[in-house]
């Protein structure tokens, strides 16, 4: 996230050392210790026990499979939404635009449990569309479509929020140039817009995917928590924990934690690319010494 500090002091003064110790203790105790203990606990009975806990329990296998289905679906929906919404907001001016932008953030300030409940009230058996869905024999709540909906809701802002600032910084000129050179809408998008926003998009997708894989509250409410049917990996962690099968629970948790670490590595890499690109953009905007836009100079 940050580049090298331009004029940072080295932590040699007593106060500096004290502050550093405080920061390291904070991150160490609150973040590193829990993370490390997941892996230690997961492998405390050896790798074989770890593997068996994951692979030999059909319910756990199903949970892994379900997570690997639901999260990509939700991320795909959010990618399409994020690109469309960012294009709308960053490239057009229309009444209600700023209201729309603040609506993008609503899922961040709504408890996932509340979001899940709202979905149950619409799609549940006693919900608004309950009778219709029952007549159609479509199951949303207590089934995977509900999981996808709930996961999409909680990850809704993640892609669009990454894209809007980047698209605004890039500006519409390149796209306008493409149009004036004869490109149609899809050509503009695939050849000009997408290559320009690819790292920001990937950043949003990685964050959304991490959140989607880990979502608990909203999914808990809409899933009905049925082992072997609607349990995702995080729900499986909780179920195993409740059944006092902590080692198995830790094994599943360790997979999720490894995924989180992978996400972070990808994130650091992508952020480096983004930084390079934004520097390039800056350089492209201010080549050479710009002169004062006044009408100075003597006549010819």
């Amino acid at each position: 996230m940050t580049s090298k500090p331009r004029d940072a002091a080295t932590a040699t003064s007593p106060l500096g050392l004290l502050l550093l110790a405080g920061a390291v203790a904070t991150v160490g105790l609150l973040i590193v210790a829990p993370l490390a203990s997941v892996f230690v606990d997961a492998f405390s009975n050896g790798p074989r026990a770890w593997w068996e806990a994951l692979a030999h329990d059909p319910d756990t296998r199903h949970a892994i499979w379900l997570s690997l289905t639901v999260a990509p679906l939700a991320v795909l929906i959010n990618t399409i939404f994020g690109v469309a919404a960012a294009w709308l907001v960053a490239r057009f001016r229309f009444p209600g635009r700023s209201l729309l932008v603040s609506l993008f953030d609503v899922p961040f300030s709504v408890s996932p449990v509340v979001a899940g409940l709202a979905l149950v009230l619409i799609f549940g058996r006693q919900g608004l569309l309950g009778p219709t869905l029952a007549w159609l024999a479509v199951k949303v709540i207590f089934a995977w479509p509900g999981l996808v909906l709930a996961t999409t809701f909680v990850t809704l802002p993640l892609v669009v929020r990454e894209l809007i600032p980047v698209m605004e910084a890039i500006g519409p000129e390149e796209e306008m140039a493409a149009v004036s050179l004869g490109a149609n809408g899809w050509q503009v998008f695939w050849r000009v817009t997408l290559p320009n926003i690819r790292w920001a998009l990937l950043h949003g997708v990685v964050l959304a995917n991490a959140r989607a894989m880990g979502e608990f509250g909203a999914v808990y409410v809409v899933s009905g928590h049925i082992a072997g049917a609607t349990d995702t990996m995080p729900l499986r962690v909780e179920k195993l924990f409740q059944e006092y099968r902590t080692p198995a629970s830790m094994a599943v948790a360790s997979v999720l934690a490894a995924l989180a670490l992978l996400t972070l590595v990808a994130k650091v890499f992508i952020e480096r690319q983004l930084e390079t690109e934004s520097k390039e953009l800056e350089a492209a905007r201010a080549p050479g010494a710009d002169t004062d836009p006044t009408t100075g100079g003597l006549g010819p």
Binding site: A178, L181, G182, R191, P195, E277, A284, R285
Partner: peptide, 26 residues
Amino acid sequence: VGFVFQHYALFRHMSVFENIAFGMRV
């Protein structure tokens, strides 16, 4: 119409060749 933008609006991710070729490619 050939339009040259104030800050050129070159396609940053394309080579000089591809920039010039863009209008013909589309």
